[in-house]
């Protein structure tokens, strides 16, 4: 890790100003991902701008939405009574993430921007298109158990590792940004990009932009939501497959359903066709199975992750059966 400069910014505007005039700079919040990446040589920055004292760490609920300040800690959000009551999927996704120690440090903004766990990406001596564009993707022929079956291509098949992002994707969150060009809000569906031929470009953020908040609309469906995370040990591990689901039924008929998937896509994965296949129909094993088949219709599995095609469908059955009281 090379030596770097460090400035504590006092306001969002100041943070953005410093970023704009400081080459090779980036923001640091909890540092739980950034510093590891810098140590491993997967990222290098000359200057870090500390965003922990910008006054953007509040969690607030108003009539229309829940607002998560970008520097709110994972733990605070997970334990917030309004979050637990009205957005259980967010709380569950956060509590299923990392460890208590990491959650005490890590921020919401940093969580959304954490980098993939692909081992080749994190090893500076391996080729990797995401780290060094054009150097190749060894995961395709190498170890790819943790990798995506959806949304990948010849350039990159890495998954986005955030559990929170999966839950936010299901709930139609919006990401608030402040940059040299001013403020803007980006729906989460547009926030994460598919790798295409530029896997190094992961989000719609422009250079120097700061995440200031994440909004989640208040909906009745969000109150009936769950997060199912399947992983390779009991805790403290990223998802092999995860599902964030929110469901509202009347009688047995699905009024509203929101679904997003982790561990299977190159970004938090949402496929509106899957939801459409369920909406307006009675929630039955048959209906869920059909929706699941739709989800994986375009899946492109690799040697190490073939099982995810089946597993993600079963995970969908499991979570919707639970939410819908099918057992």
């Amino acid at each position: 890790m090379r030596a770097f400069g460090y400035t504590v910014a006092g306001s969002p505007a100041e943070a953005v100003r410093i970023a704009a005039r400081t080459p090779d700079s980036t923001f640091v919040a909890g540092g739980t991902d950034l510093l590891n990446l810098m140590r491993d040589g997967a990222e290098a920055h000359d200057h870090l701008i500390d965003v922990n004292r910008l006054g953007i760490g509040e969690v607030a609920l108003d009539r229309r939405r829940l607002r998560l300040g970008a520097t709110a800690r994972m733990r605070r959000v997970a334990e917030h009574p309004a979050v637990r009551r009205e957005f259980p999927v967010l709380s569950e996704a956060l509590l299923a993430s990392a460890s208590p120690q990491v959650r005490n440090m890590a921020s919401i903004g940093g969580n959304l921007l954490q980098r993939t766990r692909c081992g080749y990406f994190r090893d500076s001596a391996s080729p990797c298109n995401k780290r060094v564009p054009g150097s190749g993707c060894p995961a395709i022929t190498g170890h790819n158990r943790g990798h995506a079956i959806l949304g990948g291509g010849d350039h990159c098949i890495a998954t986005h590792p955030s559990d929170l992002a999966v839950a936010l994707t299901a709930l139609d969150a919006t990401v608030g940004l402040l940059g040299p060009g001013g403020e803007r809000a980006v729906p989460i569906a547009d926030f994460y990009l598919l790798p295409g031929s530029t896997p190094e470009q992961e989000t719609a953020m422009r250079p120097g932009e700061l995440i200031t908040w994440v909004d989640v609309p208040r909906t009745s469906v969000a109150g009936h939501s769950r997060y199912l995370k399947l992983r390779d040990r009991a805790t403290f591990e990223f998802a092999v497959v995860s599902v964030a689901a929110a469901l509202r039924t009347r009688g047995r008929v699905v009024q509203d359903v929101r679904l997003a998937f982790g561990g299977v896509g190159t970004r938090p994965w949402r496929d509106l066709r899957v939801e459409a296949a369920l909406r307006g129909r009675p929630l039955t094993g048959q209906a869920i199975a059909e929706a699941g088949r739709l989800l994986v219709a375009d899946a492109k599995p690799y040697e190490g992750n073939r099982f995810k095609v089946e597993l993600v469908q079963r995970a969908l059955v499991s979570i919707l059966s639970d939410l819908g009281g099918l057992r």
């Binding site: 766990r117 081992g119 391996s126 805790t235 403290f236």
Partner: peptide, 25 residues
Amino acid sequence: TLVDPDTARVVNPNLSGYLVPVCAD
């Protein structure tokens, strides 16, 4: 321990990629 078939490099040389049991296991 995962070794890349082409480079013979360890792909998961850390306690994030190489899983050991935690208390919950």
